[in-house]
Deep mutational scan, measured.
Amino acid sequence: EVTIKANLIFANGSTQTAEFKGTFEKATSEAYAYADTLKKDNGEYTVDVADKGYTLNIKFAG
């Protein structure tokens, strides 16, 4: 089991951190699915992958 950390960075400057656990593939998939649910209210997003994929910096356009 691994932990994927998602740093969520919103257009208004606020930030939030979420963690997803499971296999690497499952946790990564859940992180992207979570970002997709936030897209409606926060706009499109870009992802900067860090720490060999264990950290995702997800920035929303607003």
Score class of each variant (00 low, 15 high):
residue 8 L to R: 01
residue 33 A to F: 11
residue 39 K to R: 12
residue 57 N to Q: 08
residue 35 A to G: 02
residue 17 T to F: 12
residue 32 Y to V: 07
residue 32 Y to Q: 04
residue 39 K to P: 02
residue 54 Y to W: 08
residue 28 T to R: 08
residue 31 A to W: 02
residue 24 F to G: 03
residue 13 G to Q: 09
residue 52 K to N: 13
residue 1 E to M: 07
residue 36 D to R: 04
residue 35 A to C: 04
residue 29 S to R: 13
residue 6 A to H: 00
residue 6 A to F: 02
residue 32 Y to R: 08
residue 49 V to Q: 08
residue 1 E to N: 07
residue 9 I to R: 10
residue 6 A to V: 10
residue 42 N to F: 15
residue 1 E to W: 05
residue 29 S to P: 02
residue 20 F to N: 01
residue 50 A to Q: 14
residue 2 V to G: 05
residue 44 E to H: 14
residue 24 F to A: 07
residue 35 A to Y: 02
residue 34 Y to V: 05
residue 13 G to H: 11
residue 35 A to M: 11
residue 22 G to I: 01
residue 59 K to W: 08
residue 27 A to I: 03
residue 28 T to G: 03
residue 42 N to L: 10
residue 62 G to Q: 09
residue 38 L to H: 10
residue 45 Y to M: 03
residue 29 S to T: 13
residue 26 K to Q: 12
residue 18 A to R: 15
residue 20 F to D: 00
residue 48 D to T: 12
residue 25 E to W: 04
residue 53 G to P: 04
residue 26 K to W: 14
residue 61 A to R: 09
residue 22 G to E: 03
residue 15 T to V: 10
residue 61 A to F: 10
residue 2 V to M: 07
residue 8 L to Y: 11
residue 56 L to R: 01
residue 32 Y to E: 03
residue 49 V to N: 06
residue 48 D to H: 10
residue 1 E to P: 06
residue 21 K to G: 08
residue 23 T to L: 08
residue 15 T to S: 13
residue 1 E to H: 08
residue 12 N to H: 10
residue 51 D to A: 05
residue 47 V to E: 02
residue 7 N to T: 13
residue 60 F to I: 01
residue 61 A to N: 14
residue 2 V to Y: 07
residue 62 G to A: 13
residue 26 K to S: 15
residue 37 T to M: 15
residue 52 K to F: 13
residue 39 K to A: 08
residue 39 K to L: 06
residue 11 A to Y: 11
residue 54 Y to V: 05
residue 6 A to R: 00
residue 49 V to G: 04
residue 26 K to I: 15
residue 61 A to T: 15
residue 38 L to V: 04
residue 2 V to I: 11
residue 55 T to G: 03
residue 26 K to L: 15
residue 6 A to K: 00
residue 30 E to C: 06
residue 51 D to L: 04
residue 39 K to V: 11
residue 27 A to Y: 00
residue 12 N to V: 05
residue 23 T to N: 12
residue 50 A to L: 14
residue 43 G to L: 03
residue 11 A to F: 11
residue 35 A to N: 01
residue 26 K to P: 02
residue 51 D to I: 02
residue 11 A to T: 12
residue 3 T to N: 06
residue 18 A to M: 15
residue 4 I to R: 01
residue 53 G to L: 03
residue 55 T to F: 07
residue 7 N to L: 15
residue 61 A to Y: 14
residue 45 Y to V: 02
residue 49 V to H: 08
residue 11 A to E: 10
residue 31 A to E: 00
residue 13 G to F: 07
residue 30 E to F: 08
residue 28 T to C: 04
residue 24 F to Q: 07
residue 53 G to N: 04
residue 22 G to R: 01
residue 28 T to I: 12
residue 34 Y to F: 13
residue 38 L to P: 00
residue 50 A to F: 10
residue 45 Y to T: 02
residue 40 K to D: 08
residue 12 N to D: 13
residue 33 A to D: 08
residue 23 T to E: 15
residue 42 N to Y: 15
residue 46 T to G: 06
residue 57 N to L: 12
residue 31 A to H: 02
residue 60 F to L: 01
residue 30 E to S: 09
residue 24 F to W: 15
residue 49 V to W: 10
residue 37 T to C: 06
residue 27 A to G: 04
residue 27 A to P: 01
residue 46 T to N: 09
residue 35 A to V: 15
residue 33 A to T: 09
